[in-house]
Computed example of a mutant assay.
Amino acid sequence: MQREPFDPPVMSTERSILLVEDNPADLDLTLRAFRRRHLLNPLLVARDGQEALDFIPRWSAGEPLPLVVLLDLKLPKVPGLEVLRTFKANPLTRPVPVVVLTTSDEDADIESAYSLGANSYILKPVDFDKFTQVASQIELYWCALNKPARQ
């Protein structure tokens, strides 16, 4: 796991957002959109499915759970649907909302994601301004309005 240069320390009192994204262009687009929004929560990045799953032992050891996981489906090492299945099967991570943020508009992917416990399914817009709007809505709902489960 690599942290972006603007990230606050991992053990910040603010709960983080975990972004699971392997595509460098999509990662850059997402990071720029959140920067433009002046996101207050730390943003952690996992660049493949295994890096995302590697957070579970850290959370078990006491690191704060994220407020929300933004999960791409098309990931190397461990596919996004398997990451989702693992997160939702684990009693520790089950309450953490998982928002699928992907380019896949396949009915099978949408149905699978929801049957595995995804809390939302959002198609990635390719236009930066539209992506900034999506980032704003994600931040507003999941970081400001939504009441997270206790850790």
Rank of each mutant, 00 (worst) to 15 (best):
residue 1 M to A: 12
residue 2 Q to N: 12
residue 3 R to D: 14
residue 5 P to Q: 14
residue 6 F to A: 13
residue 11 M to I: 10
residue 11 M to H: 14
residue 14 E to V: 10
residue 14 E to D: 15
residue 17 I to N: 01
residue 19 L to S: 07
residue 21 E to H: 00
residue 22 D to Y: 08
residue 23 N to D: 14
residue 23 N to F: 07
residue 24 P to I: 09
residue 24 P to Y: 10
residue 25 A to Q: 12
residue 25 A to Y: 11
residue 26 D to W: 06
residue 27 L to R: 05
residue 27 L to T: 10
residue 30 T to I: 11
residue 32 R to Y: 12
residue 32 R to E: 11
residue 33 A to N: 04
residue 34 F to V: 08
residue 34 F to G: 07
residue 35 R to V: 08
residue 36 R to D: 10
residue 36 R to G: 13
residue 36 R to T: 14
residue 38 H to Y: 15
residue 38 H to F: 13
residue 38 H to R: 14
residue 38 H to P: 12
residue 40 L to G: 15
residue 42 P to R: 00
residue 42 P to A: 03
residue 43 L to Y: 03
residue 43 L to M: 08
residue 44 L to F: 09
residue 46 A to D: 04
residue 47 R to V: 01
residue 48 D to E: 01
residue 51 E to F: 04
residue 51 E to P: 04
residue 51 E to S: 02
residue 53 L to V: 09
residue 53 L to D: 05
residue 55 F to H: 10
residue 56 I to P: 00
residue 56 I to D: 08
residue 58 R to C: 11
residue 60 S to M: 14
residue 60 S to G: 12
residue 61 A to I: 04
residue 65 L to R: 03
residue 66 P to I: 05
residue 66 P to Y: 00
residue 66 P to V: 07
residue 67 L to A: 09
residue 67 L to T: 02
residue 67 L to N: 00
residue 67 L to R: 06
residue 68 V to G: 05
residue 69 V to C: 05
residue 69 V to P: 02
residue 69 V to S: 01
residue 69 V to F: 04
residue 70 L to P: 09
residue 72 D to Y: 02
residue 72 D to E: 06
residue 74 K to Q: 07
residue 76 P to I: 05
residue 77 K to G: 09
residue 78 V to E: 02
residue 79 P to V: 11
residue 81 L to Y: 05
residue 82 E to M: 11
residue 82 E to R: 07
residue 82 E to H: 08
residue 83 V to Q: 03
residue 84 L to T: 00
residue 85 R to H: 14
residue 87 F to K: 01
residue 89 A to I: 09
residue 91 P to D: 14
residue 94 R to F: 13
residue 94 R to C: 12
residue 95 P to H: 04
residue 96 V to E: 09
residue 96 V to C: 04
residue 97 P to Y: 04
residue 98 V to F: 06
residue 99 V to I: 10
residue 100 V to R: 06
residue 100 V to A: 03
residue 101 L to F: 03
residue 102 T to M: 06
residue 102 T to I: 03
residue 102 T to R: 02
residue 103 T to I: 08
residue 104 S to C: 02
residue 105 D to G: 07
residue 106 E to S: 13
residue 106 E to F: 11
residue 106 E to P: 05
residue 107 D to A: 14
residue 109 D to W: 07
residue 111 E to R: 14
residue 111 E to D: 15
residue 112 S to H: 08
residue 112 S to I: 10
residue 114 Y to T: 01
residue 114 Y to F: 12
residue 114 Y to V: 07
residue 114 Y to R: 09
residue 115 S to K: 12
residue 116 L to Y: 12
residue 116 L to V: 13
residue 117 G to S: 02
residue 118 A to Q: 00
residue 118 A to D: 03
residue 119 N to W: 03
residue 120 S to G: 14
residue 120 S to R: 04
residue 121 Y to H: 02
residue 122 I to R: 03
residue 123 L to P: 05
residue 123 L to F: 05
residue 124 K to E: 02
residue 126 V to K: 13
residue 126 V to Y: 10
residue 128 F to P: 15
residue 129 D to C: 10
residue 132 T to M: 09
residue 137 Q to C: 08
residue 138 I to K: 04
residue 138 I to S: 00
residue 139 E to P: 04
residue 141 Y to F: 15
residue 141 Y to R: 06
residue 141 Y to V: 11
residue 142 W to R: 00
residue 142 W to P: 08
residue 142 W to V: 03
residue 146 N to I: 09
residue 146 N to T: 12
residue 146 N to A: 15
